[in-house]
């Protein structure tokens, strides 16, 4: 049950988008998000839609997956819409006691919701087409220049790798402890939120102890394998920019240009 939770929603495939260097993909996603915030007319969204469409088409990811990513965030989108509808001042269309709905509010709400949907789907497209390892590698490489000002690029990437590595292990362990406690009469499912949260405490204590023991053993195993930080390390797989990265950059620059032009 609990083991079936997948972390990272990567869908492996062999497409131009999947094969892009993770660094290009991260940068492109950043440009996309920045562009998204620069759009100030509904007309501007056409460019965003076109860009998303191209990326989605090339990645062969079914739009269904993209929209699945929206589900947990529906609450935030709805909240944004409500706040915008009621809080924007302007031409009053409908008045209900103290709440007023304005024409400007409706427009603003639609505008913000489209922005949020694009923001979320854009970010999911990155995680859907990039494996967690490639993503960590990309982040490490991109942060490398900032090492001089004290950003621990390698350490951050290592922490992410180890966290990803141990998520399934710890989930499995949680499942085991839960079952062991359920066998002795523990109840995790009934009661209100507070009662259920309280029932989790006896679960967390052994889990934490075991996590610390694992960390200790892992540190020893890493030391035994000559790990001494990132300075002198080499990598088996080296990231390489290729022609497709250049094409992708050209498209992205053109896209950014169009967005800025659309503002005037």
């Amino acid at each position: 049950m609990i083991k079936d939770i997948t972390i990272g929603q990567y869908i492996p495939a062999d497409t131009p988008v999947h094969n892009l260097d993770p660094r290009s993909k991260i940068i492109i996603t950043f440009v996309f998000i920045t562009a998204l915030f620069l759009v100030n007319t509904f007309f501007g969204y056409i460019y965003i839609l076109a860009f998303m469409g191209i990326a989605l088409g090339l990645s062969k990811i079914s739009p269904k997956y993209l929209f699945r990513g929206l589900k947990p965030l529906v609450f935030i989108i709805v909240l944004t819409a409500i706040l915008n509808i009621f809080m924007t001042e302007g031409e009053i269309i409908y008045k209900l006691w103290k709440l007023t709905i304005t024409k400007e509010g409706l427009i603003q709400a639609a505008f913000m919701c489209i922005r949020l949907v694009f923001l979320i789907t854009g970010a999911s497209l990155l995680t859907l087409t990039t494996s967690p390892i490639a993503l960590t590698d990309g982040i490490e490489k991109l942060l490398n220049p900032f090492k001089k000002i004290g950003v621990p690029a390698h350490e951050l990437a290592m922490m992410m790798t180890i966290a990803l590595r141990f998520i399934p292990t710890l989930l499995e362990e949680t499942d085991k402890i839960m079952k062991a406690q359920m066998a002795r009469g523990a109840d995790f499912e009934s009661g209100n939120m507070i009662a259920r949260a309280k029932a989790m405490v006896p679960l967390l204590v052994p889990l934490f102890i075991s996590a610390f023991r694992r960390a200790d053993e892992l540190a020893m195993a890493m030391e035994a394998r000559c790990y001494r930080g990132g300075d002198k390390r080499t990598r088996m797989k080296q990231l390489k920019f290729e022609m497709r990265d250049i094409y992708a950059s050209i498209i992205t620059i053109a896209f950014g240009g169009l967005i800025i032009w659309s503002r005037f």
């Binding site: 967690p132 790798t161 590595r165 394998r225 080499t234 990598r235 088996m236 797989k237």
Partner: peptide
């Protein structure tokens, strides 16, 4: 085991 993919883990020692 440090890495999330078998071959990446085997590479961990030589990388160090």
């Amino acid at each position: 085991i440090v890495a999330t993919i078998v071959e990446e883990d085997v590479a961990f020692g030589p990388e160090n």
